[in-house]
């Protein structure tokens, strides 16, 4: 099996490593970089718990090879808060009770951030559509939608 030297930026920090070809990006993020906020849920591209942003676009990191992320800019949930201040989306999930167990939350928030960048004031339908690749099995989606609306308002203010 081939091994590859990759260099990438993760949450603004440079990172590089030798990775075997079959290393999945999510394992690289969790095991090599020790950023365990990115979760492994279904492991089959369905649930979205492993969602990270690659060059700004939401990606299920269980379905990408680490070597494919060579040269990319990656944002994980650890990169949302800046200078000890929660990101508006994190504040929204906190204020609106957008989580119970929190397992899906990192992926939900990263998809939301990408959605709000493209569409700063989405309708409820657009939020539900935008998050339809992320599954929540406990909170239900009502408060998640509210959390995104909270963040949209806060980011526009």
């Amino acid at each position: 099996m081939s091994t590859h030297h990759i260099k990438l930026t993760i949450n603004g920090q440079a990172a590089e490593a030798d990775v075997p070809a079959r290393t999945l990006l999510v394992h690289f993020i969790r095991d090599t970089l020790s950023l365990t906020g990115t979760h492994i849920g279904c492991d089959t591209t369905s649930c979205g718990a492993c969602t990270v942003l690659i060059n700004g676009r939401p990606t299920k990191s269980c379905t990408l090879l680490a070597v494919q992320a060579d040269g990319a800019e990656i944002t994980t949930v650890e990169g949302l808060a800046q200078g000890g201040q929660l990101h508006a989306i994190q504040e929204g999930f906190h204020q609106c009770h957008g989580l119970q167990c929190g397992f899906c939350t990192p992926g939900m928030m990263l998809s939301s951030v990408a959605l709000l960048k493209e569409n700063p004031s989405p309708s409820e339908d657009e939020i539900r559509w935008g998050l339809s690749g992320n599954l929540c099995r406990c909170t239900g989606y009502v408060n998640i939608v509210k959390a995104v609306q909270y963040a949209a308002e806060k980011m526009q203010a």
Binding site: T45, G48, P58, T63, S111, W129, G130, G133
Partner: peptide, 8 residues
Amino acid sequence: ADPIVRNW
């Protein structure tokens, strides 16, 4: 699929 998968 879904919006995240459609990015790839």
